[in-house]
Write a protein that binds this DNA or RNA. Structure first.
Lengths: 204, 204
DNA sequence: AGAGAATACGAGCGTTTACTCGTGTTATTG
DNA sequence: CAATAACACGAGTAAACGCTCGTATTCTCT
């Protein structure tokens, strides 16, 4: 009785490159058309491969979204690691902390237009919500940790709510910032920072 | 040569009732599944009619969205008329004005779950964006007029930006409020008001 | 070199969905 | 009371989409 061959195959170098191509193409298609309107055949074509090849690496559109979310999570982690090291931030004034977090985040969203197609949505299909749940949890945890330092006397419940609200404010404004004319962006980013600082002030 | 029979038929009472049923059913389906996932056959079934009958009144899903947007516009207009009469507001403090606008708006969103499926989205298919463009324009105009009274010394450009930002903040937070446990809503609504008041304060 | 695994192809299958069309029923109009 | 228009039906159609499968090529490992 030979061992049943479930489980992913041992990828070759070629395969790993293909997976990157596919994820890159998928990010473009998601950004251009939105998650629902993007098609697997379209992603395959954009990646320069056949539909069949795509399914050698991913089990479907939701799986691609999951993998892309994981990729974004790593990249965002790298881009934000500095901003979220609590130790340095303990003494800093709130506006500086907000600026340190928002700056790189805006840059990341501009550089990765596919990101907002997956995350900055208020209503998503269940399959997509499930795919991005892990990174949402990570973000929630990080922001929650940060707010706990900035607002130490807040109750757990209030802290939880403040975290959700702060994240939602950023998610709401980010598409506006990304879509705006580059010349108009700085003012919008300043507004976003002011919004957050103003909100956090009311919680003291 | 008989005159070509383009143009909508002269509706009977029965037909007008059907159109209302359809729009009501569509609002439910949009709220339950989202615009894209909602199907015309599903809307027809929810309205208790056949697919063919639906197309006697609407030319397609986008047309239903357009009509529903128009209906919401009327209803929202009625619900908000008091809050937006500038004369009474000229002297009032900013927090009171914000409360007067946000209160009914939150009620409206809770009472009409289909509303946010059409409006509180950051990325929509082009056909949907086109369908809701008129009411967006109306809202933008009203909020802009209000802000012009509250912040008289703002430049046109700054006023324009502030209007977009304020609307976007509300659009971002509304799904959170509607989806929240009713007991948790008041705190979220307070947060939303504080966010707006805090933001407007930074623009003085 | 030979075998097995990974990669690649693309026509096409099954399903879903928006929408049509032929036909029949109810209401209005002259 | 016709005659015409509005309303209603629902099986069916064409297109789109996610995904499969048979087959062929390339890589890895012994």
């Amino acid at each position: 009785m030979t061992p049943t061959d479930t489980g992913t195959p041992r990828r070759q170098e070629r395969g790993r490159r293909r997976m990157e191509q596919i994820l890159h193409a998928a990010a473009d298609e998601f950004a251009r058309l939105g998650y629902e309107a993007a098609t697997t055949n379209g992603i395959a074509a954009a990646a320069g491969i056949s539909p069949g090849s795509l399914y050698q690496f991913f089990s479907g559109k939701a799986d691609i979204a999951r993998a892309l979310a994981g990729l974004y999570r790593e990249q965002l982690d790298a881009a934000q690691s500095a901003a979220f090291t609590r130790e340095d931030l303990a003494g800093l004034p709130v506006p500086d902390v907000v600026a340190a977090v928002i700056g790189p985040l805006v840059e990341f969203n501009i550089a990765h237009p596919g990101f907002k197609a997956l995350f900055a949505r208020t209503d998503m299909p269940a399959e997509l919500a499930e795919a991005v749940a892990p990174i949402h949890a990570v973000i929630h945890g990080k922001v929650g940790g940060l707010l706990a330092v900035l607002l130490p006397e807040l109750s757990t419940k209030d802290l939880e709510r403040a975290t959700s609200v702060a994240i939602q404010l950023v998610r709401g404004m980010m598409p506006l910032i990304v879509a705006a004319d580059p010349a108009a962006r700085p003012a919008l980013v300043t507004d976003l920072r002011n919004v957050l600082v103003g909100y956090l002030d009311t919680l003291r």
